[in-house]
Design a protein around this nucleic acid. Structure first.
Lengths: 238, 238
DNA sequence: CGGGACTTTGATCCTTATCAACTTATGTGG
DNA sequence: CCACATAAGTTGATAAGGATCAAAGTCCCG
């Protein structure tokens, strides 16, 4: 618990050079190390609850998590997925506007929001990184809006598969075609894919079998995809 | 053109206390004033083009603008609306990921992105404001995702009407029920409303007439709405 | 007053949701 | 290690909400 005796996680951290802490100097890293702590999450475990007071923020070290919200009638909409080096939570805010749940077993670096906010305000370099990351996240979210608002089921699935394979790539280090990865373990169930894309589980399932029959993809197991024709999928997604 | 002779706009700026420049000191404001300039836009005029090199950023002083993107087939999706005091453009990025067009006559305070980026990096207070604003914008955008992904046409329209009336309120200063505004001039055409909500113009039109027949709203003209039963609309939107 | 853009209304079609049955995986305890 | 229970996914039939296509009606502005 006591920060002065905490092991220096950061120095061996696998996302040290990609997360918002990347540009910090050793002394700053040491300080940050003192206020954060590692936490393991099992698949399905919840880290933040929608509407709760925003007490935590975190960096994803390993695993995939979802941000989500619900409609009054209980329909879920996944607002985003967080992969290693992504930042989680709502700094400088009263409440957390979405729930966060681990989809796979995960490891995160957690901070009390108050501690983090203070540290950020005192370290413009970190705040700048956070700003850049937030701006990119906003860009990504807006692209997703186009998907939700204007694409049909087939286009949504195609987009989703290509993006997922890309984002999972660093973890899998698996097969790829001239640099572009073509397969991945799916971190989501069919229902979760549906919640990401604003579809129902049945539509997702039907669309996947159709793509498989069309020779666009292969589904070795429920939690794996292989893009047999990545080009065609990208064309659909466009 | 020459900054040293530019009038000191900022001191009389109507959004001086709400925009990202709010916390700056007089000397900083003066400096910022030197790199920015005012620009009037007519309704329909484009300020930024999707995919262009990101050369400009801006603050909205007056009017309403839309951020939008298109699907390959030319279907438009509006990604957001910018009202007075909102920030526009993509700082710290290579390209502008969306187009920006004035929906009403508008007045904006424009900066060369390079100038703005430099200024921001040298003034953490401004960068902090920008971060807070970007985080709020991300929250708003994510709420919009729930709307696009999980709401039906009626719920979408209800949400849109309530939000629009609220955001237009400062400008209209018009009728309100215990603090909550109940009418506004619509800054968007039916087609644009459709593009915001991921619907077609026909569906928007039908839904509005239905709401009018149900006594939920009144439509004194094509560009005005009155919320006759704001409560009911909020309930639908939830 | 007339022309063009915008909007509304109507008829029909299509995609996706919904409801239901069935199949395949996953996992647990005897 | 198998049998059974349970969860997850697939497939089918039907229905509904919006999209699309077409036409008529309004408003605006010169």
């Amino acid at each position: 618990m006591n920060s002065s005796h905490a092991p220096l996680y950061c120095q061996t951290c696998s996302i040290r050079n990609r997360a918002i802490c990347a540009d910090l100097e050793d002394s700053e890293i040491a300080e940050l190390n003192g206020i954060g702590r590692r936490r393991n999450l099992e698949a399905g475990e919840q880290l933040l609850w929608e509407g709760d007071e925003a007490v935590l923020v975190a960096n994803v070290i390993e695993g995939v998590l979802k941000l989500s919200t619900q409609t009054e009638e209980g329909k879920e909409q996944i607002l985003g997925l967080a992969y290693p080096s992504d930042f989680l939570g709502r700094p400088f805010g009263e409440t957390t506007p979405f729930g966060v749940e681990a989809l796979t077993d995960a490891n995160v670096c957690v901070f009390q929001r108050a501690d983090f906010d203070r540290f950020a305000r005192e370290h413009p370099r970190l705040e700048h990184k956070l700003l850049e990351r937030t701006l990119s996240e906003l860009d990504r979210t807006r692209r997703w809006m186009l998907l939700l608002g204007r694409m049909n089921a087939e286009q949504k699935l195609a987009s989703f598969l290509v993006e997922t394979v890309d984002r999972m790539a660093p973890a899998t280090c698996a097969a790829s075609l001239n640099g572009k990865p073509t397969q991945a373990a799916l971190p989501l169930s069919r229902q979760q894919v549906a919640d990401v894309l604003g579809l129902t589980i049945e539509t997702v399932s039907r669309q996947l079998t159709k793509m498989k029959n069309d020779g666009l993809i292969d589904l070795p197991s429920r939690r794996e995809v292989v893009l047999l024709d990545r080009e065609a999928l990208e064309a659909l997604a466009r």
